[in-house]
Computed example of a mutant assay.
Amino acid sequence: MSGLDDLQADVTEAYEDIDGELDLDRETTNELAMLAAGLGTDTDQLVERAVHLLFQTTVDSGKLDFHLRSAYDVTYDEYLSGMTYEEMTGGSFPQPETNDDRRYQF
């Protein structure tokens, strides 16, 4: 058996395991199966890593804060501290008095 045949067998086996465990679309199942076979890592660990990476990227880019502010009127930092900026500072969050168009700059 060649390396290509071995890889195909491992990917197929991982695909079948994933397909029975998780409700994913075909493309995601294929990608997860390839990662599991290629990295030799359990699919549960790969899903944990993927969620952590997505979470970290979303926090770092400011996207989580944007969505939290839109839906709950708080940021992730406020959630972590258990207090809003207003409660922390005793007033409103400082905004530039003259130029409000820079408010959502990344």
Rank of each mutant, 00 (worst) to 15 (best):
T12K: 12
L4W: 05
L68K: 01
Q56E: 13
R49Y: 13
L32W: 05
L22Q: 09
K63Q: 14
D17F: 13
F106L: 11
E97R: 09
L4A: 15
P96G: 00
G40I: 02
E31M: 10
E97T: 07
R103C: 02
A36V: 01
M34G: 05
T75P: 00
R69Q: 13
Y72G: 05
V59Y: 08
A71P: 00
Q8C: 05
G3A: 13
Y76S: 06
D65N: 10
A71G: 06
S2N: 08
H67M: 15
I18P: 01
V11Y: 00
S61P: 02
S81P: 04
A9T: 12
E48L: 04
E48P: 06
G90M: 02
S92G: 05
Y79T: 03
F93A: 14
L53Q: 14
H67Q: 15
D44M: 07
E21K: 15
S70L: 02
E13T: 13
L54E: 12
L35D: 06
M1N: 09
D10T: 02
T84F: 06
V74Q: 04
T41N: 05
Y79D: 00
A36D: 05
L35G: 03
G90H: 03
N30D: 14
E97H: 00
R102C: 08
D100Q: 12
G40V: 04
G40H: 01
Q105D: 10
Q45P: 02
Y79P: 03
V11G: 03
E16Y: 03
H67G: 01
